[in-house]
C-alpha cells in the first residue's frame, strides 16, 4: 500500500489540474487501490514557488507547477515556451514532451534536482485584454500592460510598459483603468476570472499564442523506491496523459468560449490574419530567441540549438493539430465567424 502526496498550485478547474485528477484516479484504479493519493489543489499545501523545491526535498511526492517561472535559477532551459511560436496547444504539448525525451540537457535539469519528469502540458493560448483597440504592433506604444516572463520581453520590445503585477490584481487594475491591458492568462482562466466583463477589447495580438507550460514531476527517489508493478502503472498512465490533453483542452476552450458569449456583452474581439501575424512575429521573434539564449547562457552554450530544435518539433506537429485558439473559438460560438 502506497500513499503519494500530490500538490499543485493551479486552480481546480484548469486543464492541467483536470488531467492530474484523471491521472490519479486512473492510477488508483489500475493499481487496484495499492496506490492512493492525498491531494492538495490550488496551493493548499505549498505555494507555486515552493512546489518544485519541495518535490526535490521529498516534501511532496508528485507536483504540478511551473518551475521555469517560479524557480528560474534551477530550470532556465525549461523556459522555452515563448510567445509567438505557436497558437496550437496540442502541437506545443507534443513538441515539449518530445523535446524532454530527446534533449539530454533539459532532462538533466530535472534529474539534477532529483525529479523524474512525468509529463508537461502547454497552457491554453493567451490573448491581450485591453481598454483600447490593439491591432498592429504599433498600437502597443506606451500601453501599460500587465505582463510577465516572455510576453513581458515581447511587450517591452514593442514599446509597451510591462507591469508585473499579480494576475488577480491585474483584473482589478484593468477594471479601474490602472493598466490599459492585461495578458499572460490562458484563455480559459482569463474568461473564468471575468476578463470579458472588464475589458472592452480582446485580441490575439498577432497570435501571441501559447506562452507557458506546466510540468508534472515525481520525486525520483520515491519513485524508484516503489515496487516495480507500481512504477509500471504510474508510467503507463503518465504516458496516456498527453493523449487525453487534446480532448480535455478542446472541451475547456469550448466551454470558456460559450461562457464568454454569455457574459462578454459588447466586447470587441479581433483575431489576426496570416499576414498580420507574420508582421507581429517578425517584430519580436529574434528578440525572444536572443533573450532565451542569454538567459540559459549560464548553464549551456547550446541555447540557440535547443530553441531551434523546439520550434522545429512544433512545426512538425502543427499540421495534425485539432486545437482552436480561444478567441477563434469565441467568434465561432458567437456566430461571428
Amino acid at each position: 500500500e502506497t500513499k503519494l502526496v500530490y500538490a499543485g498550485y493551479i486552480t481546480r478547474s484548469a486543464v492541467a489540474t483536470t488531467l492530474d485528477e484523471w491521472f490519479m484516479d486512473q492510477v488508483e484504479q489500475r493499481s487496484n487501490g495499492r496506490i492512493t493519493f492525498e491531494r492538495y489543489y490550488s496551493g493548499a499545501l505549498m505555494k507555486a514557488r515552493d512546489l518544485f523545491p519541495g518535490l526535490t526535498n521529498g516534501a511532496v511526492d508528485i507536483a504540478t507547477g511551473a518551475p521555469m517561472a517560479y524557480n528560474p535559477q534551477s530550470y532556465p532551459l525549461s523556459n522555452i515556451m515563448m510567445p509567438y511560436i505557436t497558437d496550437k496547444a496540442d502541437a506545443a504539448t507534443k513538441a515539449i514532451i518530445e523535446l524532454y525525451g530527446s534533449n539530454e540537457e533539459i532532462k538533466q535539469e530535472y534529474e539534477r534536482q532529483g525529479i523524474k519528469m512525468l509529463w508537461s502540458l502547454a497552457f491554453p493560448d493567451g490573448a491581450i485584454w485591453s481598454n483600447r483597440p490593439i491591432h498592429e504592433p504599433e498600437d502597443l506604444q506606451g500601453v501599460r500592460i500587465r505582463a510577465v516572463s516572455g510576453i513581458g520581453w515581447a511587450m517591452e520590445k514593442l514599446g509597451a510598459s510591462p507591469v508585473p503585477m499579480s494576475f488577480t490584481e491585474a483584473v482589478e487594475a484593468l477594471n479601474r483603468g490602472a493598466v490599459d491591458a492585461v495578458t499572460n492568462a490562458p484563455f480559459d482562466s482569463g474568461v473564468n476570472v471575468g476578463l470579458p466583463k472588464v475589458a472592452k477589447y480582446a485580441t490575439d495580438a498577432g497570435r501571441l499564442g501559447i506562452n507557458g507550460i506546466s510540468v508534472t514531476g515525481i520525486n525520483k527517489a520515491r519513485f524508484e523506491g516503489l515496487p516495480e508493478e507500481d512504477q509500471a502503472v504510474i508510467l503507463q498512465v503518465a504516458a496516456e496523459v498527453p493523449g487525453q490533453f487534446a480532448k480535455v483542452v478542446n472541451a475547456a476552450i469550448e466551454k470558456a468560449a460559450r461562457r464568454m458569449v454569455e457574459q462578454g456583452g459588447d466586447i470587441q474581439v479581433s483575431v489576426s490574419t496570416d499576414a498580420q501575424a507574420a508582421k507581429w512575429k517578425a517584430a519580436v521573434a529574434d528578440t525572444l530567441r536572443g533573450r532565451y539564449i542569454e538567459s540559459v547562457s549560464r548553464v549551456t552554450k547550446n541555447g540557440g540549438a535547443i530553441y531551434d530544435q523546439f520550434v522545429a518539433l512544433v512545426r512538425k506537429h502543427e499540421p495534425d493539430s485539432t486545437y482552436t485558439p480561444g478567441l477563434e473559438a469565441y467568434l465561432k460560438a458567437a456566430g461571428k465567424q
Binding site: R49, A69, Y70, N71, P72, Q73, S74, N79, A147, V148, S149, G152, W153, E156, P162, P164
Partner: peptide
C-alpha cells in the same frame, strides 16, 4: 547557494 530568484519581467534575487 542556488541564487534563488523570481522572474517577473526582470530577474530579482529572492
Amino acid at each position: 547557494r542556488q541564487g534563488e530568484s523570481s522572474f517577473g519581467v526582470y530577474p530579482f534575487p529572492i
